[in-house]
Design a protein around this nucleic acid. Structure first.
Lengths: 211, 211
DNA sequence: CATCGGTGGATACTAGCACTATCCAAACCG
DNA sequence: CGGTTTGGATAGTGCTAGTATCCACCGATG
């Protein structure tokens, strides 16, 4: 297909697609002539991947590029590629040295140990957990996340992992891991907020006699 | 306390604090003279609230301002204020008309009905759920989120809601709702990613004979 | 065969966001 | 009394994710 068809089918402006080509997020089409190239379904799917990570996952273009480069680099072993992807999925967290921060690190350590998880020392998700615990401390909110960890563990092991198909081509492996993390994460967050809204409506109905 | 103490205790540059004052995120201090004002613990706490929403929740300043304005406006009934806050917590989602989108709306409807939630028609979290379902469809991933909804429901009703104290001054009510949504949401997401990392390590240990 | 609109490729420009920097005059502190 | 801090106003910065413009070219149309 031509650029204009890729544009209309993806819903993206031609200028935007050219930008992704420039940035290396989208592979070049098969060149037919100096001013003509042919794109196929894989390009369309790639665009959908980009937009899902960008709009739903709110990942910066630079992180998406890291993920895509790792996928496209056939010399990387799969587990390295997954490491790169996981790293790109997290925002960088700057430690704020101080007592609260060290306490938060210990809290995180305890949570992880209690679940029996084996986690790389510099896993980005660990830093995000520490940051959040740090803020909870500062604001004097409960840092007891044991039940959350428990439920997260069950969600992943009982529901999410069994539905992943680890075979197939390597790009679909990363895609499913990355998209699974981002999309099901966002989905769960939306569901959680809906549950809160419903629950809070219940509470105010029961406590407020009438308006 | 003076500006410089507020700055050192919060870890924020004076220029940044002045910016928040300009934007109305931080109330003016009690004026002592034309070039002197007095700030107290409430200002410090407000700064921590702002930074938690900004860094952990990644909310734009404009949304934080909406939340704070609602909190500071005593004429708003509490449930209206909560509605404003909930609205500000979500990113705007533009519908992408098409078959996939309508299907996604139905999927969302079914999920909500299955949990028995009563949800406002234009709840922003609903739109985010629809958007995510839409992307899942486009990428041919499973849109079966029943178990996720189930777990989200249990997380909220069994763990998060009981720990909220709905009495007390109105600003602490909103604060706890908003911070609860943002911070525990982020915490759960980090825990979920850690659980995935641990689970995927298990899988590759068991399937990869050796390196 | 002429020409007209859709390309590929390069370069420059833009909007929005979250700050930062600079300046000023007043005021406090020793 | 002199150096430092402050409140208040205005202007500028760096980054991100695109947009816009220009050009030469090419391929289908009449």
């Amino acid at each position: 297909m031509r650029m204009s068809e890729l544009s209309s089918r993806s819903g993206l402006a031609i200028a935007t697609i050219k930008y992704y080509l420039r940035e290396g997020l989208l592979p070049q089409g098969r060149p037919l002539a100096a001013t003509r190239a042919d794109y196929d379904e894989s390009h369309l799917r790639r665009l959908r991947l980009i937009r899902a990570l960008l709009e739903v996952g709110r990942l910066p273009i630079a992180s998406i590029k890291q993920i895509i480069s790792a996928v496209d680099d056939d010399s990387l072993p799969t587990h390295v590629m997954l490491g790169v992807a996981r790293h790109a999925l997290s925002a960088a967290v700057a430690p704020e040295p101080g007592d609260d921060w060290s306490e938060a690190e210990h809290d995180a350590e305890r949570l992880i140990a209690a679940q029996g998880w084996r986690i790389g020392r510099r896993a980005p998700a660990r830093a995000e957990l520490v940051q959040t615990l740090h803020r909870l401390r500062q604001l004097e909110l409960s840092t007891d996340l044991g039940h959350h960890a428990e439920l997260a563990h069950r969600l992943v092991t009982e529901i999410e992992i069994p539905s992943v198909t680890p075979d197939g081509p390597r790009d679909s492996t990363v895609e499913s891991v990355v998209l699974g993390t981002v999309l099901y994460g966002k989905a769960f967050d939306a569901l959680r907020r809906l549950a809160r809204e419903a629950a809070e409506a219940e509470v105010s109905l029961s406590t407020a006699p009438d308006a």
